[in-house]
Amino acid sequence: MTAHPVQRALAILEAVARLGPGATARQIAVFTATPASTAYRLLNLLVADGYLVRIEDLSGFALGRRTRELAGAEPEEESYESVLTELRGRVRFGIHLAVFDGTGIRLASRDPDHAPAGEGTLTGHPHASAVGKIALAFHPALFADRSLPGVTHRTITSPDVLSAELARVRQREIATEVEESRIGRCAVAVPVRDAHHVVCGALTALGGSAGLRVDDTDLADLLHTYAARLAGVFGPVATGRRTETCG
């Protein structure tokens, strides 16, 4: 029996959905009873058009986001990247998104036009960065018993001063950093919440000391507006790690 190419393509997508992420081309060909060379050709076409994606080692497949279009589903809701791209177009600072997971702070989206220098300091010394202060303020248990080394001469190294600073961060929902993680750099960060209103990340603007004013209320308002939009995009973080980090 000769199947129509569209039927074959749908059968291949169904096979990937059934076999799960990482299904190999050979498994898919067997599952759909498609000749191997035809299956390989269709798989490459489906990947090229975004209906499937290849996993990192290239030997298997997972469903691509465009399968929603194939199913006649409604248009995509806005993605976190589209929200960030819009914000990046409105300011001249580097806009980055950090998420807090089981291992600590991770930069989930870096501004491609303003690569963050000293990323290790941003995520590794939370008391020295605006992003880290958000994490410390809302998830103190994550960073208990940590020392407070001076990264620059302006880093807060006194536990009392830091406690007062974190109380202000919790109250105002905004954290700032003036040459504390790197000389010549300032930053403003605001918390990003998930659908359960739990802080699960931070949206930050990084810039030079000469250009970025940490008391710029317009910038703070802008960051808060976009952080609220990101909350709608993130929804509940669907990983088991959320409970141990954000819960």
Partner: peptide, 22 residues
């Protein structure tokens, strides 16, 4: 064109309620 009851249909329906961080 995706019939209901298929694994593909379920995966697409499920995708709208799953929100993963990047």
């Amino acid at each position: 064109p995706v019939p209901t009851g298929t694994a593909l249909h379920e995966a697409i329906a499920r995708s709208f309620s799953v929100h993963e961080p990047p």
